[in-house]
Simulated assay, not measured.
Amino acid sequence: MSDYEKFLDLHHQAKPLVIANAWNVKSAQLIEKNGFDAIATSSGAIADSLGYADGEKIPFAELLYMLERIRSCTGIPLSVDMERGYADNLNDLNVNIQKLIDIGVAGINLEDPQGEDIYLKKLSSIKNYLARTNQQLFINARTDVFLLKLPSPLETTLRRAKLYQEAGADGLFVTGVQDPDIIKEITAATSLPVNVVGTPKLSSIQTLAECGIKRISMAVFLYRATYNQLENIVKNITATHSFTPLHQPS
């Protein structure tokens, strides 16, 4: 079974796929070591770790290098946060997609802040390219309607879900949604496996499972939590004039 097939199956099991977001090899290895079935990347975490702002500010070549290192050092399916695809030209977009496939990526997130018309052109281009070249890649269609606070967010999300499914998306990633009742309406209205981010207001995996969610991501939050711990350690070294904080059990 290919990594794509394994990754696809993880979205259609009884329990949700809980997926942690890595930013380098070590974080990815720790995710794999601790029993996760797949690894996702966080574009914001990778960019920030290399001194770039989020939002495709990191050169794609640098992102690809990090992804290649992660993939070569882990053995479970890898899904990549591709933001808007790092290209507006459709031929360039497909070149980027091929580079991901060549290093063994199983899936991507592709987001729609440019609007559904541009998004559908990109999604259709990728699907046509995959069909033409007889290749497979899980496309998690990320819609930022709630995150961007667009008008009529539920209605717009449901419309986009239908359009994206018809265009060949494999999953639906809804960011910024916080209300379990709204989540239930979304999952009931689409046959696509729905992905949300675990947040303080949506921290219970069981609750999200009961809402019909099939994939739960950690986004940039795992990265932030890690570096919050690091900041606490170095602050304590400075405050105590001691290296004891380096050797305290975690």
Rank of each mutant, 00 (worst) to 15 (best):
D3H: 15
Y4W: 12
F7R: 03
D9M: 03
L10C: 01
H11E: 03
H11M: 02
A14T: 15
K15R: 15
L17V: 07
I19R: 00
A20E: 10
W23T: 06
N24S: 03
N24P: 08
V25F: 08
A28F: 14
L30H: 06
I31E: 01
N34Y: 15
N34G: 00
G35Q: 05
F36W: 10
F36T: 02
D37I: 00
I39D: 02
A40W: 07
T41V: 05
A45H: 08
A53F: 13
A53P: 01
L64Y: 10
Y65F: 09
Y65E: 15
M66N: 14
E68L: 01
R71Y: 05
S72L: 12
G75E: 13
P77K: 12
P77C: 04
L90H: 14
N91K: 08
V95Q: 10
I97S: 00
Q98D: 14
N109K: 03
N109Q: 14
L110M: 07
Q114F: 11
G115P: 14
S125Q: 06
L130C: 04
A131K: 09
T133Y: 13
Q135M: 08
F138S: 00
F138H: 13
N140L: 08
A141S: 15
K149W: 05
K162T: 09
Y164P: 05
G168P: 13
A169N: 05
D170V: 14
G171W: 01
G171V: 07
V174L: 10
E185M: 15
T187M: 06
V194G: 07
I216V: 13
I216T: 10
V220A: 12
A225L: 12
I233V: 15
V234C: 12
N236E: 11
A239N: 13
H241F: 12
F243N: 08
T244Y: 02
